[in-house]
């Protein structure tokens, strides 16, 4: 790890100011990706802005229609939250299966979503639930947020402060864990709302994506059998030593069915 300047602001405005004025500056959330990257010298920023002391980025609230979770909330807190467990149990379940206990106690919702790792779990829930990403500057709909591999709609100096999740009628998340990393080899989040169903897939491609054919079929009939014959095109899906693209495509259907089953429980 190379030396860098370390800042721990107490106000969001101060954090934004640092990020926009200091050259070569990185945001530190839970550090689950940034710290290993620094240690391996794959990143060597001149400065790091640690968001740990920003009170506005913490807390979980329920307004009856949506659940809002502060960006610096660790996965373990989301998993154990009575509000999340009662209102969106699939989200609590998803958080409980991220990484291992150490990761769940350090890693944060905002960090995971901002990093947009193609195999991370949270992007599936954010897109699957049609959540709104609240930043230091504006609100961004999930459908416009995830741009590509490790890429988001965030502008330089823009910080995620919270994410607002609509409460679905039912939702489920089914994840095929990569045996070594525990990342999603394929993870599918299915959410049923009064006006339709959303299906979001993580792990399978270069970034989280929705499956329109499954959404339509499940809007007609919210049963695993209604999507059993829907096949995903393997072209463009990830192929690596753990799973070839056609296997991932197959797993999308299997995990989607299991997510529907989980949502129906």
């Amino acid at each position: 790890m190379r030396a860098f300047a370390y800042h721990q602001p107490n106000e969001i405005s101060e954090a934004v100011k640092l990020l926009t004025s200091v050259e070569d500056c990185k945001v530190l959330g839970g550090g689950m990706t940034l710290i290993p990257t620094l240690k391996q010298r794959l990143a060597a920023p001149a400065a790091v802005v640690d968001l740990a002391k920003l009170p506005a980025l913490k807390g979980i609230s329920d307004d009856g229609v949506t659940v809002t979770i502060g960006a610096m909330t660790p996965h373990a807190v989301v998993a154990a939250s009575p509000i999340v467990q009662a209102r969106i149990p699939a989200l609590a379940h998803l958080a409980s299966e991220i990484g291992d206990p150490a990761v769940r106690n350090r890693g944060t919702l905002g960090g995971s979503v901002a990093n947009n790792d193609p195999a991370a779990d949270y992007p599936a829930a954010v897109l699957g639930l049609g959540a709104t990403i609240i930043t230091s500057a504006r609100e961004i709909a999930a459908d416009r947020f995830f741009v590509g591999l490790f890429e988001t709609a965030l502008e330089p100096g823009e910080i995620i402060t919270a994410i607002r999740f609509p409460v679905p009628v039912a939702a489920g998340y089914a994840k095929f864990k990569a045996p070594a990393s525990r990342y999603a080899l394929v993870g599918v989040f299915v959410a049923r709302f009064a006006d339709g169903v959303r299906v979001a897939v993580t792990g399978a491609g270069a970034g989280v994506f929705r499956v329109a054919a499954m959404e339509q079929a499940l809007s007609q009939s919210f049963e695993p059998t209604s999507i059993a014959s829907i096949k995903i095109d393997a072209a463009g899906l990830t192929s690596d030593i753990h799973a070839e693209a056609d296997y991932r495509a197959h797993l999308v259907t299997v995990m989607a069915k299991r997510a529907v089953t989980a949502a129906s429980r």
């Binding site: 045996p179 070594a180 990393s181 990342y183 030593i241 753990h242």
Partner: peptide, 16 residues
Amino acid sequence: LVSGSLMDYCVPRADH
């Protein structure tokens, strides 16, 4: 070496 870390080389864990 493609399986060059514990992220890609799976050492069995208790839940396996």
